[in-house]
Structure formats: structure tokens, C-alpha cells
Design a protein around this nucleic acid. Sequence first.
DNA 1: GATGAATGAGCCTTCATTCAT
DNA 2: GATGAATGAAGGCTCATTCAT
Lengths: 215, 215, 215, 215
Amino acid sequence: MTSAAPVPVRKASRDVRRQQLIDSTIRVLGQKGYAALTIADVARAAGLSVGIIIFHFESKDRLLAAVLQFLAEEYRQHWQAAMAAAGPGAPERLSALLRADFDPAVFTAEKLGAWIAFWGETQGRPTYDQICAGPDAERQQATLKLCEALIAEGGYVITPILAMRTLESLCDGLWLGVAADGAGHPGRVTAAEANTIVKTALAALFPKHYPARQV
Amino acid sequence: MTSAAPVPVRKASRDVRRQQLIDSTIRVLGQKGYAALTIADVARAAGLSVGIIIFHFESKDRLLAAVLQFLAEEYRQHWQAAMAAAGPGAPERLSALLRADFDPAVFTAEKLGAWIAFWGETQGRPTYDQICAGPDAERQQATLKLCEALIAEGGYVITPILAMRTLESLCDGLWLGVAADGAGHPGRVTAAEANTIVKTALAALFPKHYPARQV
Amino acid sequence: MTSAAPVPVRKASRDVRRQQLIDSTIRVLGQKGYAALTIADVARAAGLSVGIIIFHFESKDRLLAAVLQFLAEEYRQHWQAAMAAAGPGAPERLSALLRADFDPAVFTAEKLGAWIAFWGETQGRPTYDQICAGPDAERQQATLKLCEALIAEGGYVITPILAMRTLESLCDGLWLGVAADGAGHPGRVTAAEANTIVKTALAALFPKHYPARQV
Amino acid sequence: MTSAAPVPVRKASRDVRRQQLIDSTIRVLGQKGYAALTIADVARAAGLSVGIIIFHFESKDRLLAAVLQFLAEEYRQHWQAAMAAAGPGAPERLSALLRADFDPAVFTAEKLGAWIAFWGETQGRPTYDQICAGPDAERQQATLKLCEALIAEGGYVITPILAMRTLESLCDGLWLGVAADGAGHPGRVTAAEANTIVKTALAALFPKHYPARQV
DNA sequence: GATGAATGAGCCTTCATTCAT
DNA sequence: GATGAATGAAGGCTCATTCAT
């Protein structure tokens, strides 16, 4: 607070505008889906002109790639932060990692909608795969490591890889359900239910670490 | 001019052609995704002309609705048949119901791709929701009933609705993984792994009914 | 006139439509020039829709390439026909070849305008160069051969290549002048003057073959 | 803060900048042609910003008009200087006037390219015609006067106007060839050949004034 | 003077739909 | 039934021009 900011105003403004457009795109994506999204929609949602989107992102395709990159990066930072905040114990870390997926503070209905929209479009879009491949692998690796630790400690018979795939698949499916619940499918799965289900699953897989509770 | 066929030729030909076009649409959907699909693509894949698609389905939207309807109906019949073939016992019926999702005889890579494509587009498309709502509810109901039976018999503490949601979400997530594995993401989840995971999950939820096995 | 045309109607119609669009493009090119031409202009001039241009030519660029190709081919056939009609003698053939450039029956103001428009755009447009290279070389070769024949017969001191370049450059320059005269520059050069000048030039270069006349 | 410059800095800077932008435009025109030229290209070539072009020229159209005006004026001064330097005799003056067109010191490949680009765009651009009309007429008049003088002296039968048009058209055509040769069409006409051809043409038209030489 | 972000009109192109054959 | 030429609305992108800094 004591000196002139070293960051040039121009540069800051540039990034601010880019983020503003990314946010608007997420909003539109959540509302209209991938196929129906037009850059005019995004411009309207941002209160800006069509031209400025191309000016900042070069093309609609690159805008969407930037949006996915942002979502993937935000997601990565979110589960990593949640895991770090959980302390050193493997059980707490795994639980935190998985339950971060359903943190209502971060995963709004719009962002979930945007994720689903991309999910459907991943087919034959190598670009999108490339963006997600790294973060996806990182997360699987983190889950796998924690499962290994628990299995080593608890002497469970399940293999680490199978436990990891079970938990990750369960989270993916719950996510889909939560997204659907948020977007006009009341009665699918709420975030609270998802949390309970994850806890139950952990208790079933690793009973010595996660004491069963009445549900 | 006399026709001995019990089914009118016109009608038969009509349905054959419609199915031919639905199949081609599924193929294109699996390859190019929802957003990039054009009527010309479908016509080319079917070896027919653009006009004939409109002639049979009136519009692109209705063609896609018909495709989703077909997929949903085929899916429904598939799990119902699997369940029926499993015999009268609830444990066998539940296992058969869930594992039908990963029957390679029915769920080809292309069909999985088509399903994912629709999934992403469900946002803001009430038509698609309407098509899936009935079959979805029917399946949830079936799963729920079987969970209730097992819980009643085994005296498990989990609630039927939570068990149902766990299993359904797990299947959804595994499906996504299998689809990704089929479409250029080797190393996600194979159909065989999915089956093992489902068995393990059943054993974890209902240990008295599904004896644990070394995995 | 006595039998059903063996040419399929479809094919004929296709080519007829293409030529119709090429003609309209030449018209617009002559009126508005290259830079200002839009495919909407061409569609309007042809009384057709924008879509059909893309349908038949795939893109504006390819339409223009097709137009240049047509002009180049038409031009080639024109001077070749004129040369052939002139008989076997080299002097007559050379005269006919050169004067064919100013035949008002073929080189309308619009076509001249279209040629000039392309000429200016040839810079950095390899495609256009490629289209013209063959016909250009063919014509230079024809002129060169005739110059060689005359020089051999008449014992002139000029080299064939220099004679050819003189005559070809003179024709190019006259063309430019005739085109300018047609398009709002009255007082440049008329086709009749161009013919006289060519004759005078031939008489000056090859006096034994072309008797000088009072001009 | 004290300025010793006799010319105001503002004014000087203004003209310097204008000329800098005109030069850059010529460069781009020679490389990309008229239709593909954008203000951003010119700005990039000049190492300046888009805004400054509009600031100095008000619009793209006026920039291009200024460029053409500059080229026309430079050209005029060039042939007038060459003619003046040739001395008082009509034959020397005519020869100098015509051969100034191919002076490599002035007519670089880029400038030739720029000229051709404008030439093609003259259709339906009254502004461009207006700019060139005066200088064009002036030059034709100069050539005509010299032809008249030679014809009067030498008693040639050709009319002055025809001689003028022959020589001017020949120069135009040679120019086109030289420009093409410079821009990726090797083997058209070099500046040296053009000079020889002009000399030969003068010898053919006015043999008493220009002694024939072995070529 | 100078910059470059921002605008918006206009262009090329795509593609669902129509319709004459 | 079937074809594919033709239409035209809509979308992405370009680029001359403006203007706050």
C-alpha cells in the first residue's frame, strides 16, 4: 500500500477483460449449452462488443479453449487447497479431496453446467482433451497415493487402483447428478446428499479409517 | 398389385429407412459430437440425400429427438431384459441390472459417444429431458425397489434411497469413464474394470448378499 | 437438332449455372473492380442467391480463380483461332495474332475491365500467376516462332526475342489504353487506333513483309 | 527548449511522419496488393500504431489517395528532370524522357508493384483518375511535342499523335513486364531489355534521328 | 502526438429447409 | 420415395474508425 504498483495498468486491464469474458462465457455455457453458444451471446452477457472477443482471443474456438483451461486450473487449485488445508493425515486428506467437488462455494450451477457442456463436446476435440489430460492425471495420482497409504495402513484387500477408480467414478457420477439437479432436474442429487454418499463410500471401502455412521 | 405381405411394404420400408438414418446419426454423433453434426454429414454417412432426412423426420431437431428416444428405449429394454433373465432373486436382479450397463454387446464406443454428446446438450433443452425423464425414473424405481428388498432382508443401516443413488451415480461415472476410454483416452476405465468395481461396491454395501472376493 | 441430347440435363444445368455466375462476376469486376467486389454483388447481378455461389464454387477465392481461368482460356482460343484463320503465311499469321487482341467482338469493355482488375491483383497471388503462366508462355512462344520465321526470311538485324518482346509489350500497353478508354478515360486509345499502331509497328520492324502505308 | 531549426519542428515532424507512412504503404502495396492491404499492415510496416495513420490522413481512402499523388508527382518530377538534363535537342530529350521510366535508381520493384496495384483499381474510382489525369496529360503533351519536332525535322510520314501513342503504349507495356519480372515472374522483361527496346523503337520510327545499331 | 482497446457495420461462409424434377 | 439445386437467415470474423488515456 506504500508504493506505486509495479504492475502496468495496461497489462492488468488486459487480464481483467479476458477474465470478464471468460466469466461471461461460462455463464452462457451454463444457460444455453455448447452448441447454441454464439459469441454475440457472450458479448451481450459481458456488456461488450463482438469485436473485443476476437481481439482478445482471436477466435471463438480459442475463447472456449481458454475457458476450459481456466475451469480446469481453478478446479485443480480448489482440490489441492482443500487437501492441503485438511492437514497431514491421509484419511482427512482423501476425504477433503473428494468432498471438495461438492463445495457450493465454488461449484455454482453455472460452472457445473459449463463443465457438462464441455464434457459432451470432448469427442473428437483433441484440443479439449489436451487441456484436461494433465490436471486429470494429477488428480488421479493424488487419489491413488492416498488410497495406497490407507490400504497399506489398514490392510484392506482392495487394490489401490480399483479403490481410486471407484471413488473417482463415484464423484464423476455424483457431479453429473448434482449438475442435473441444479439445471432443471429437481430430485436428482443435491450437494448435501453427494457429501453423505462420499462419506458412506469411504466408510464402506476403508471401514477402519472412516467409522460408519447412521445415515 | 396384390400384396401378400402382412406388413405393408411402404410401412416396412419406412421404418427401415428411419432406422437406417437413426443409426447413421448415432455414428456421426459419436465421431463429431453434437455441435458439429450437420444433416449433410448424416446423409453422407447413410449414403442418402439431405432431402430424405427432412422427409422422414421433418427437421433436424426431430431427427435428434428420435435418436435420443431410440437410445433411451433400447437402453430400457436392455436392462429390463437383463434383469428378467437373472431370475427371481433380488441380489441377482440388482447385479444384472447394474452390470447390463457395461455389456459390450450393446454399448459400442459409438453409442457411448452419442450418449455423452446428448448429455452435454441436455442443458436448456426441455425436449431431451422429457424424453429421458420417463425411462430414467423407471430405472431408478427398479433399483430402489431392489435396494429396499435387500435392506429389508439384510438389515443394513443405509437408507434405500441413498443406496440407490450411490449405485446409480457410480454407474453413471463409470459409463463416462468407459466412454472416454473408448474415445481416445486409453487408461480410463475398461468395461471389465467397471464390472469388477460394481461387484465390489455391491459387496461393500450389501456384504451379506454379495460375498466379498479377492480383487 | 434431330435427336434427344445425349448430355444429361443435370450436368448441362450445372455448367450453365457456373457460366452464368462467371459472366456475372466479370460484369461486376468490370464495374467495381477487384477490391470492392462482393459475392452479394455477383449474386444480385446474376439474379440468384449468395448461397448458390458457394454451392457451385466453394468460396469467393475459387470463384475468382475460375473466372480468371475462363478469361485466360477464352483469350487463348481467340488468338489461336484468329491465327489459324489467317492461313499458312507467317506475316499474315503474326498480324492476325496481334490484332486479335483488339477484336471488339470479343473484348468488350467489361472483359477488359475484369482483366485489368486481375492484373493489379496478381501481386502476391501465386494462384493467379499459375493460371496465366501456361497460356502466357504459349502465346509468347507462338509470337517468337513467327518472328523467327520473318527474320530468317527477311534478314533483319533484330533478334527474334527482342522483336517478340517489343510486339507483346506494345500490345499489352495498347490493351491498357483501350481498357482505360472504354472505362471513363476518353481520349486514350481506341481499338481502331490500336490496330493502326500494330500495323505501323510491324511495318517498322519487318519492312520487307509489311509494306509501309500512309497513316 | 530553444530551437535553432528554421523550419518549425512540428511541421517538419508532421511531414516526415506522413512520408514515412506513405513509404510504408507503398511497401505493403507492393507486397500484398491493393485489395489485401489493411491499415494495420501499414502501421506494422511503419512500426507505428493504427491510430496515428488516421490522425495524419483522416481515412484509409485519403491515405491511398496521398500515396498515389506522391507516386504521380515523383514520377512527373523524374521524367521532367531527366528531360531537362538531356539538353536542348529534341532527339536527346525524347530518348531521355522515355528511358527515365526504366531508371532502376527510382523505380524499385516495390514502387512498380504499388503502381500496378493502383492501376487495377482505377476502375470506378474517379478519385484516382483525377489524381493521374493531370500528370498523364502533361507527359503525353511533352511526348507529343517532341514527336512533332522530330517529324517536322525528319519529314516522317507518321502522324505525331500516332507516334506518341505508339511510344507511350510501348512504355506502359514494358513497365508492366518489368514489374512482373520483379515480382516473381522471372523472364518477362528486365529494365536493361526495356531500354534496348525503346531505343530500337525510336530507331524504327525516326531512323534519321536515331541511327540503327546492332541489337 | 501517440497508443491500442473498443466498436460495429459488413463480409464470407455454413447449413437447415424448401421444392422442382 | 428420392434427389440435389436453390434459398436465406444466422454466425464468425475482419477491419476502418473512434476515443480514453
